[in-house]
């Protein structure tokens, strides 16, 4: 280098003088510094982008200066970022569509739904929930479920949300009562990749009418049971397998069985031996759906006493299958 540089310097000195040499030297230094700054800029920006890609920065000793410019890492990564952004845009469109679908589903179901964060704050809710609990929509997402629904600042007894947060498992509450209304509640946790509960989806179904109907039916059932229990005839209800579903007081008194003994009995246990074959034919006919006129048979008490009876037997069905026979008898000759 010096072998070339010294003669050159001598020629320039002769032609242009010392000042020109100094000017060229300064210009050369300036250009080298500018080039260095550009390389460092490329290296810095490349490393910033590499960091975003989750990889290591370029080592200080490599690649060579020429290689760094020639390989165009910024250009390569910029083009990759364009693809990432296009993909993100596509994903966002799919997320937006999924969000719209979810909103439509939430609006269409007859179940009150809300999503709570791990601090019980309401994040999402549907219109049915507002109607169900007569809740004002304004400021609802600023409130906790306790404040909005139960109107307290602490967990109510048997709170489904609290149970989900404690167990990290779904909770199904069959009958939760709020303001004299009955609800079936399902609470399902949403977990992050570490298994922590980040949200809880709460679904409420108003079952007040069903509960009232069931209560009414139970009351009616009890009323009929009382009527049959105190009837002046022997009443029995027999399952298809011959076991007793119900017998009344007079039936028990006449045949000498206590209430506890009924569950172990079958219909043929209370039929006198000589009447069993006829009775089994009657029972089989009923099971096939045939109607019987008045039935005469002989019952057999616990004390082996024969009891001639006469009465009527009918059969009831459920889903087309025999459910039970229902018989009322009176004693014909003691």
């Amino acid at each position: 280098m010096n072998r070339v540089y010294k003669p050159m310097r001598s020629i320039i000195h002769k032609l242009f003088g010392e000042s020109e040499i100094e000017r060229l030297t300064a210009e050369n230094r300036s250009l080298r510094e500018a080039n260095f700054r550009q390389i460092e800029y490329i290296r810095k920006k490349t490393n910033q982008m590499l960091l975003l890609f989750g990889t290591l920065p370029i080592r200080p000793e490599e690649p060579a200066v020429e290689s760094l410019i020639d390989s165009d890492p910024i250009g390569v990564m910029t083009e990759s970022f364009i693809q990432i952004l296009e993909h993100e845009k596509h994903l966002n469109e799919r997320v937006r569509a999924a969000h719209d679908e979810t909103q439509a589903i939430l609006a269409s179901v007859g179940v009150g739904i809300m999503v709570l964060d791990s601090n019980m704050k309401i994040q999402i809710y549907n219109q049915r929930l507002l109607e169900m609990f007569s809740v004002a929509e304004e400021g609802l997402t600023e409130k906790t479920c306790c404040q909005a629904i139960c109107q307290t600042d602490s967990y109510p007894a048997n709170c489904a949300f609290e149970r989900v947060m404690n167990t990290r498992r779904p909770v199904h509450q069959v009958d939760w009562v709020m303001n004299k209304r009955h609800f079936e509640v399902s609470a399902v946790p949403v977990k992050n990749r570490f298994g922590d509960v980040t949200q809880v989806v709460m679904a409420y179904m108003d079952i007040t009418n069903r509960v009232k109907t069931e209560l009414h039916l139970r009351e009616k059932e009890q009323m009929y049971l009382d009527v049959f229990e105190n009837a002046g005839e022997m009443v029995q209800c027999v399952a298809p397998d011959g076991s007793f579903i119900f017998v009344n007081r007079l039936w028990r008194e006449n045949l000498g069985y206590s209430s506890d003994e009924i569950s172990g009995l079958k219909i043929w246990n209370i039929i006198a031996p000589e009447s069993r074959s006829v009775c089994m034919e009657h029972f089989g006919s009923l099971m096939k759906g045939e109607r019987l006129s008045e039935v005469e048979t002989v019952f057999f008490s616990k004390e082996c006493k024969e009891l001639p009876v006469k009465g009527h037997v009918t059969i009831s069905y459920s889903d087309g299958k025999p459910l039970a026979t229902f018989g009322m008898f009176h004693v014909t000759n003691t």
Binding site: F53, L56, P73, V76, S80
Partner: peptide, 17 residues
């Protein structure tokens, strides 16, 4: 080694997208 492998891979993917 990294980051050369990633830059090379990205270049190939971009070229053949």
């Amino acid at each position: 080694v990294c980051p050369a492998t990633l830059i090379s891979a990205l270049r190939e993917i971009n070229s053949h997208k």
